[in-house]
Computed example of a mutant assay.
Amino acid sequence: MSIPWSSDWWWWMALLVQLLAIPGTLFPLLPGLIWLPVGGLIWIVAVGWQQAWPELVVALVLFGLGLVADLLALGLASARLKASRWSAAGAGVGLLLAVLGLLPALPFGGPLLGALFGPWLGALAVETWVTKKPPRNLGWLEALRQGSVVGLAVVAGLLVSRLAQLALALLGVAAFIGLSSR
């Protein structure tokens, strides 16, 4: 007995894959917008390139916009405060340590707060280290102040990027539904 591989089944499969982009945009270590073009490729397998190319093109454009949103949010947040180029890397390491549970548990928060505290702590540590060394050679208190402000800016950039990617994911799912049901 074989499974009926009708286009309706493929449409639901593509839609479910694209819906995975929504939680992926909210939780930093899950894949996010990449699910939009994957769903578009599934739809192409079902109905062919001639009919499904608009869905894939829209998904690829939204995925590219999500990458640009990440770069802009972190870059603008760091550049505005004249932060070192390593502050975003420190925030990434802090986020990874927080999500993996390697940072001590906060008594008043959970994983979501850890996902905000980890990047701030990572950017703070890296920025303090960098501004303490020449050519800036700030004192410890001034370096800590600069590091904490840069850490807050990086976290704000991450939040703005997450919100932009969530909007792009919702737009991608809505575009898929609108374009594929014609």
Rank of each mutant, 00 (worst) to 15 (best):
L72F: 10
L166F: 15
V160H: 02
L116C: 06
L170W: 07
P134Y: 05
V160F: 10
S87D: 00
S161P: 07
G94N: 10
W10D: 07
A73K: 03
L152S: 11
V93W: 01
P134F: 00
L26I: 14
P119I: 06
A88M: 15
A52L: 08
L166M: 14
L56H: 04
G114Y: 02
Q51W: 03
V160W: 11
L97H: 01
L62W: 01
D70N: 04
L76M: 12
T131Y: 01
P134R: 05
L124N: 00
F108V: 08
V149A: 09
S78W: 07
L67R: 08
L158H: 05
G94K: 03
L158S: 09
W43N: 06
W120R: 02
L41V: 13
K133R: 15
A105Q: 14
L103N: 06
A88N: 09
L113M: 06
F108E: 04
G157I: 12
L121S: 14
I44Q: 05
T128D: 09
L29D: 05
G151L: 03
S87N: 01
P4I: 10
V47N: 08
S2T: 09
A167K: 10
G157V: 14
D8Q: 14
I22E: 04
L15G: 11
L163W: 10
Q165W: 02
A73V: 06
S148D: 01
S161I: 02
W12R: 11
A77W: 03
L163Y: 11
I42R: 04
V17S: 08
V99P: 04
G178Q: 08
A169C: 10
V45H: 02
Q51N: 05
V150H: 00
R182L: 15
F176P: 05
W10A: 13
V17G: 03
V38K: 09
E127L: 01
